[in-house]
Amino acid sequence: MKKLALAATVALGFSTLGTGPATASGLGTAPSDSAPSVGTYSNEAASPGVDSSNEDSVMKEADLALKYRTMTPREVTGDKGIEFTIDGLKKGDDVTTSLDNEMWTVEQDGPYDGAVVMNEKPDDTNVKFTITVKRGDEPDRLFHARVHIIEGDRGDYDDGTLVMDPEEKMLDEGLYQEGLNLTMVNCSSKDQVNFQVFKKNEKNKTKVWEKSQLAGEDESASVRYMPRDGMPDTGKYEAVATCGDLKDSASVTVDPTEPPA
């Protein structure tokens, strides 16, 4: 199976992010015939970084995942740009991003696929932005997102490849703040994609999370795993994704955050 083949990260200076018109497959609409995803939502409490005043909003079941959380300058300025999925939305919700401030209205309940294109190469190694969901008179729901910029070429993915970010290692602080971004790519459109996360030990593994989502018109599905209070944090995890007869897995080791000196 061909995985990512990325060059080393290039240090870039900071500057104001460029903005541009948004484009995406299915932008402005949820994928055709999509249905609300099932399984345990990753942020049953408000996600870290979300204004606590929104905790009572019925939108708290909504969850953001990026298709790719590591991208090249060519990708973020290309035809598709930064692609994202927000689960748990309702028909009539309005979605905006801080990169272009354009508004799109969700046309049906379920996962919403959107994207935003930058009109110039970013000068920082991280593109930080927010996505805002408005629903009637409820408080706005803000999602804080970050895309890591690398130089190089991704290469191609085989059918049914699970792309996980971060890869290999992360700190428990990062797990609770940003979670694991999981994307199953090159599935058949409208396939039901099932994601599971297991905590591994020397003898066996225990399922700690599961979620399903329909693959969109781009033949992928993206979700985010974030542990809740009381769930295991450090140690080895394995994520498994299936769509149709295709199955793939990826592992990550979560290390404890070093206390400040």
Rank of each mutant, 00 (worst) to 15 (best):
K3A: 03
A5T: 05
A5Y: 01
A8Q: 04
T9N: 04
A11M: 08
G18E: 04
P21S: 00
G26H: 10
T29K: 15
P36A: 09
S37T: 14
S42H: 02
A45H: 03
G49D: 11
S53C: 11
V58L: 12
K60S: 12
D63E: 14
L64K: 01
L66E: 08
Y68L: 11
M71L: 08
T77A: 08
E83A: 15
I86P: 01
K91M: 11
T96V: 00
T97A: 12
S98H: 05
W104G: 01
T105W: 06
P111R: 13
P111Q: 10
G114S: 00
A115L: 10
M118K: 14
E120W: 07
K128A: 02
T130M: 05
I131S: 00
D137W: 13
P139A: 13
H144G: 01
H144L: 11
R146Q: 15
V147N: 06
I149D: 07
D159A: 05
D159G: 06
G160Q: 03
D165Y: 05
D165L: 01
D165Q: 01
P166Y: 06
K169S: 02
K169M: 04
M170N: 03
D172L: 11
D172N: 15
N181K: 05
L182G: 07
M184N: 03
M184W: 03
C187N: 12
K190V: 13
K190S: 15
V197I: 11
V197C: 03
F198Y: 15
K200P: 00
E202R: 15
K203E: 05
N204Q: 00
K205M: 13
K205C: 10
K211M: 12
K211Y: 11
S212T: 08
A215G: 12
P227C: 11
R228C: 10
P232C: 04
D233C: 09
V240H: 09
T242I: 12
D245R: 09
D248I: 08
D248H: 02
A250K: 11
S251T: 14
S251V: 15
V252L: 13
V254M: 07
T257Q: 09
P260T: 06
A261D: 15
